[in-house]
């Protein structure tokens, strides 16, 4: 039973880990741009960045198939020119999880960046700091807790991803079957012991993450 649980657990951590990394980099970047600059269409961009939070995962999965499927806009090009196929691979699952987890990083990071007093950034500028140094020494140190809290939520969300992953990566034991998919299979097959164990593992990991991120959301200064 441990062996049966270990494979999906490791795969889940791998998928959620890479997905969180992608969501962190892209989410924080979008959040910073939208928090600091207002431009034509920034409201629409904000809505699009938040969209994966409210859309059914299956719809997201469908969008992803349209984009990265073998005949998709990007997927077609990737397959014809580089021979890369993302459908039904763990990398495809990473992409699906990243899209679903993205708004959690984006929302928290945007609030965190907006919570940094622009007067402090201006003070750093009058003290001779370049824009890069202002970001590295003032903006980021004051915003990182909020960003990290959002990142942990994104990881927890990524671990529990089901719908979009199923659409894009399928449910192939040992290759794309993550914990949440394994639970579904175990219940369908009447393996209650395995299902209980998988559910327990998932719950413990998620509770730990939520407690830690809850601590980080409290302001430090």
């Amino acid at each position: 039973m441990f062996g049966q649980a270990l494979v999906p657990l490791v795969l889940t951590l791998k998928v959620a880990g890479f997905a969180t990394l992608i969501a962190l980099l892209t989410g924080a970047l979008c959040a910073f741009l939208l928090a600091r600059y207002s431009f034509w269409g920034s409201d629409v961009l904000d809505a699009i960045c938040t969209l994966p939070m409210v859309m059914p995962p299956t719809v997201l999965g469908y969008y992803l198939i349209v984009v990265i499927g073998r005949r998709g806009w990007i997927g077609g090009w990737l397959y014809e020119n580089l021979g890369i196929n993302l459908m039904f691979t763990w990398q495809g699952a990473v992409l699906a999880s990243a899209v679903v987890a993205f708004p959690l990083v984006f929302k928290s990071a945007r609030a965190a960046f907006e919570g940094v007093d622009t007067q402090l950034e201006n003070a750093a500028r009058t003290l001779g700091s370049s824009e890069l140094r202002v970001f590295a020494r003032v903006t980021l140190p004051l915003a990182w807790r909020g960003i990290l809290a959002g990142t942990m939520l994104a990881f927890a969300r990524g671990m529990g991803e089901f719908g979009a992953t199923l659409m894009v990566a399928g449910n192939i034991p040992g290759r794309t079957q993550t914990l949440s998919l394994a639970v579904y299979d175990a219940v369908q097959a009447g393996q209650d012991d395995l299902a209980n164990f998988l559910v327990l593992v998932t719950s413990i990991v998620c509770v730990l993450i939520l407690v830690a991120s809850g601590k980080l959301f409290k302001p430090a200064y």
């Binding site: 007093d117 007067q119 402090l120 201006n122 003070a123 750093a124 009058t126 003290l127 001779g128 700091s129 370049s130 140094r133 020494r137 003032v138 140190p141 004051l142 430090a220 200064y221």
Partner: peptide, 25 residues
Amino acid sequence: GFVFQDYALFPHLTVEKNIDFGLHG
């Protein structure tokens, strides 16, 4: 030099590091 109305001290840096901030570079 600019002394802001609410002083705009960097809350995450000590007094020493605040004063040192403008000397880097």
